[in-house]
Design a protein around this nucleic acid. Structure first.
Lengths: 116, 116
DNA sequence: TTGATGCATTCCGATATAGGCATATGATGG
DNA sequence: CCATCATATGCCTATATCGGAATGCATCAA
């Protein structure tokens, strides 16, 4: 079979939030629903660009759209962030431990160096 | 200027953990340091593949390497996950709120449908 | 020194974006 | 029906990966 490329990023929340501008959009949406143009302007990006990012966010379920006449109001649906929070949270004790670990690591380095 | 492509994924933790296999590697490393081959075998991936993922993780600072004779032991350095945890945590109250929001959303949908 | 072992790299192919720009769509107001 | 506003898409380019396979490099054992 042919070589495979990177997994589709548009298919999961982890990938969706890997893009800084999409994180910005999500952050803005905490303040409430907003139309595309609004978001685009506030974030200094073109409208098509905003629409595309919103599409990705919609596809992974992090935002939802509501038709409001001529506009489409995008709103936050943060439920998809929860699994991420939990996954990352699984490392909490390790980043607290890290200093010690780093210390022993440095120790090992010195050790190794002296043995040479 | 020419069109720009996606931001380099190898340059930040958000992107590093967007790749499932890299998440798997990090999860495994919670149990302690491990040589490349070990990780590769346990995760059922080729050695070069493991090395490449480890390189990305190293570049964003999520793992560190220690030379141990013929082997290179990779260890977790979870400190880089903390900012992510905090960013995502900033949405916590929203995913708790979500049910209500979703309800009103569904209401709106019904409403809209009936009006057609 | 000669292998063998453990990894990192390089080269190549297929593909997935991100962005820009132009354009198609849809709904609204006259 | 027509012009306009608000968005979504399509097309095209430059890149960035991810993967595999082969290869380069140390280091270790005999």
């Amino acid at each position: 079979m042919a070589a495979m490329a990177r997994a589709a990023t548009t298919s999961d929340a982890f990938n969706a939030i890997a893009e800084p501008q999409r994180r910005d959009i999500l952050a803005l949406l905490r303040a409430g629903e907003r139309p595309v143009t609004d978001l685009a302007q506030e974030l200094g990006m073109s409208q098509p660009r905003a629409s595309k990012h919103l599409r990705v966010l919609r596809e992974v379920g992090l935002v939802r759209v509501r038709e409001a006449g001529k506009q489409r109001l995008y709103g936050l649906d943060a439920r998809g962030l929860r699994p991420i929070h939990e996954w990352v949270g699984g490392f909490e004790r390790f980043w607290n431990e890290s200093f010690d670990r780093l210390d022993t690591y440095v120790q090992d380095l010195k050790q190794t160096r002296q043995e040479e």
